[in-house]
Design a protein around this nucleic acid. Structure first.
Length: 261
DNA sequence: ATGACCAATAATATTGGA
C-alpha cells in the first residue's frame, strides 16, 4: 500500500496537476493540505472518476485538508481535539480496514507560526503541536498502524534546509519548534523518510520566489510519522520531486510511504 | 540582466503562505 501526503496549495488551481499525479503515482491513500476551499467547492468529480473516495475538511480561502482513498474509509473524524474554539481546518483522520486489520491515517496541516514574534501566531503553533502530541499519545495507546502525514511546517534538522543561518529565527526552525517535533518522535513515532533515506539534502518544499527551485534552495517540512505498528511494515519512501518542475506547480511535492499492508 | 511568487477574495489591493 502506498500512502502519500501533498500540500497542493489550492486544489482548484491545481486540479490538472492532481489528476495527472494520481494517474502517474497511483497512491492508495492521499492526504492533501491547503485545499483552500469549502467542502462543496472541492473538485470531487474529477477525483472520483479515477476511482477514489473523497473526504474533505475545508474552509473558505485558506487551510483545508482532504483524504483521497481507493478504499472507502470506515470512519472519518474532522478537527484536532483539544480546543473547541479553534475553527481552522487543519486536521482530519480516516480509519480503513485492510489485511490484517485497522489502519489510521491523519492529514495534518500544522500552523506556520510566522512571524515568530507575533503574539498570536507562534503561540498558536506551539499550542497546536501540544494538542497533536496529546492526540498521538492517545492513538498510540491503541497499538495500531497509524500514519500522521502532512505539512508539519517543521524543519527537523539543520541539514533539512539549504542554509540554517537563513532559517535561524523562523518559526519553522526555532529551537522550541524542533523540540516540540522531537517530543512527537519521542512518543515512539518514526520519521518515515529519515528511516529509509540518508540523502542530504532531501527537500519537499521550494519557495516560488528568487528561483529557489532552480537553485535547490529547499526545505524538508512534509513528513510521515509512523506508529511502531506502521513503521514495522514500512518498505520504503519516495519524495516525488519531479512534480515541482511541472507547469503551474505547488510549492510542495508529494511524499509517499510504501507499506506491506 | 542587478531582475523577483502565488492563490483567493465581492478583489484592480490585501492577506496569508514559508
Amino acid at each position: 500500500m502506498k500512502i502519500a501526503t501533498w500540500n497542493i496549495n489550492g486544489v482548484r488551481a491545481r486540479i490538472e496537476n492532481l489528476v495527472a499525479w494520481l494517474k502517474q503515482s497511483s497512491p492508495d491513500i492521499v492526504c492533501l493540505q491547503e485545499i483552500k476551499c469549502q467542502d462543496d467547492a472541492f473538485p470531487r468529480l474529477e477525483i472520483e472518476a479515477l476511482g477514489y473516495h473523497v473526504e474533505t475538511h475545508g474552509q473558505k480561502s485558506f487551510n483545508g485538508v482532504a483524504i483521497l482513498s481507493k478504499l472507502k474509509p470506515d470512519a472519518v473524524n474532522r478537527g484536532l481535539p483539544g480546543d473547541e474554539a479553534d475553527e481552522q481546518a487543519r486536521f482530519m483522520e480516516a480509519v480503513f480496514s485492510v489485511e490484517p486489520g485497522k489502519i489510521r491515517v491523519c492529514s495534518i496541516y500544522l500552523p506556520n507560526g510566522n512571524p515568530a514574534d507575533d503574539p498570536v501566531k507562534y503561540p498558536y503553533k506551539l499550542a497546536w503541536m501540544a494538542r497533536l502530541e496529546a492526540f498521538a499519545r492517545d492513538r498510540l495507546a491503541l497499538e495500531e498502524p497509524l500514519v500522521l502525514a502532512g505539512d508539519y511546517n517543521v524543519i527537523p534538522e539543520p541539514h533539512d534546509c539549504w542554509d540554517p543561518t537563513v532559517w535561524a529565527k523562523d518559526a519553522l526552525f526555532l529551537p522550541q519548534t524542533r523540540q516540540a517535533f522531537r517530543r512527537l518522535e519521542n512518543l515512539g513515532l518514526t520519521d518515515a523518510v529519515r528511516a529509509t533515506a540518508d540523502d542530504v539534502p532531501l527537500y519537499t518544499f521550494w519557495d516560488y520566489q528568487a528561483g529557489s527551485w532552480q537553485k535547490n534552495w529547499g526545505i524538508r517540512i512534509d513528513h510521515l510519522l509512523l506508529s511502531p505498528e506502521a513503521a514495522d511494515r514500512l518498505t520504503g519512501t519516495a519524495v516525488e520531486k519531479d512534480v515541482r518542475g511541472w507547469e503551474k506547480p505547488s510549492d510542495h511535492v508529494p511524499v509517499a510511504g510504501y507499506f506491506n499492508f
